[in-house]
Design a protein around this nucleic acid. Sequence first.
RNA 1: GUGAUUGUAGCUCAGUUGGUUAGAGCAUUGGCUGGUGGUUCCAAGGGUCGUGGGUUCGAAUCCCAUCAUUCACCCCA
Length: 455
Amino acid sequence: MQKPSIPKGTRDFSPVEMAKRNYIFNTIREVFHLYGFQQIETPAMENLSTLMGKYGEEGDKLLFKILNSGDYFSDVSDAELTERNTTRLAARICEKGLRYDLTVPFARFVVQHRNEITFPFKRYQIQPVWRADRPQKGRYREFFQCDADVVGSDSLMNEVELVQIMDEVFRRFGIRVCIKINNRKILSGIAEVIGEADKIVDITVAIDKLDKIGLEGVNNELRSKEISEKAIRQLQPIILLEGSNEEKLQQLKQVLGGSAIGLKGIEEVGYVLERIKLTPIQAELELDLTLARGLNYYTGAIFEVKALDVQIGSITGGGRYDNLTGVFGMEGVSGVGFSFGADRIFDVLNQLELYPADSLLTTQLLFVNFGEKEEAWMLPVISKVRAAGIRTELFPEAAKMKKQMGYADAKHIPFVAIVGESEMEQGKINLKNMLTGEQTLVAVEELIERFQSDK
RNA sequence: GUGAUUGUAGCUCAGUUGGUUAGAGCAUUGGCUGGUGGUUCCAAGGGUCGUGGGUUCGAAUCCCAUCAUUCACCCCA
């Protein structure tokens, strides 16, 4: 039994799912445009030299590599083959890989097109990315990212604007969210103050898990990373910091008094929070020090968005990274951006059933087909109806009524037009409302009017 | 990469301590004169029970291997 299948961690999207996904992407796109972001696309595959080494050792393993075409073994010596070193052999026979995220290809794009780009450059990008990960709930090997970044501007106004965009998008979706904000410089300050500056990655990774494994779990993990007991003790009040954002900042100022970088971080967060007050947002905005966002390339602001009404991981994340393009030889370009987790937003909207009814509609009107004479009569009518912007179908063959009605039903087409001999004689159309079952005899002009006044 | 879990029809699942021809619901297709669907009734198609081996007179059922699935960890969206 050879059932066809697709690779694990990939998905087919049905018409209904596509309608929902398009609603998500279109909403995000509209808001991006509203803030002056421009769309770009980059190839699915990049040179491996562009990708390798950008995501850490773990990331390199998760890259999908593409076998060279042609006789790729001809250049490989027998010694290399018998050595069976996968990594090294892969480097010899693969020179391309599938994109792992949108940020690195974007950095490459900026460097490559530096002379055509006007800075600050605000771009967005909605494309699939691929990771050779082991899939599990809500995690796929092919998934979509919706990134927006601003490069070439150090101003914190960009951070403010990004928060506004996140708020606007989730407001449009009708999802209640909490936007969490943190700053890498504060984390660095903390590590410095407790005397474990070189362990900053271990510390941030550990306290990022507070939600999941609790305080004891975090402390155990810190111990396993050989953080001193004294440092862990000093860390406790910081991890458990409470109160309003202002109160937290006040307390932090005391604790981090001796750290220049820490104070800088406090100042930055304070600025963003103050600015946001001038353009009130609907979402909650919370300073959360446990926010560390796994990857440690962020250097300033760190963002994360959580849905309030659904138990799910973060649905959006981002931050500022200085020297985005440094690895490609272009120094001094800072960027700040974030990424909507389209697949998780999809899950949230499904659970809360927040799709607007009209986002799921396709065909509005189906003409039943009784035969050649009727077809001839209906074709010009259908052209008129379509010209009026009504999404219309003619059933392609004179099948049984039951079949044609069933078709309309399965596609959730709200109106069916029935035209047989008696209708043709009167020059009218029998319009049936599939929800109420109600039928009325109308002229073409009247039919069009009904649809237009409906909107 | 680590640890578990589950593989029976297109989908969701039954299947007794191992016993003849493996079932149900949903879905699909057809029928109840080709002018009415979403909700009736009747019928049909569809499975070498993931694959390979073993134990047995006999395996969907027990054992081994293998592949696949799902979940958790690592990491991440």
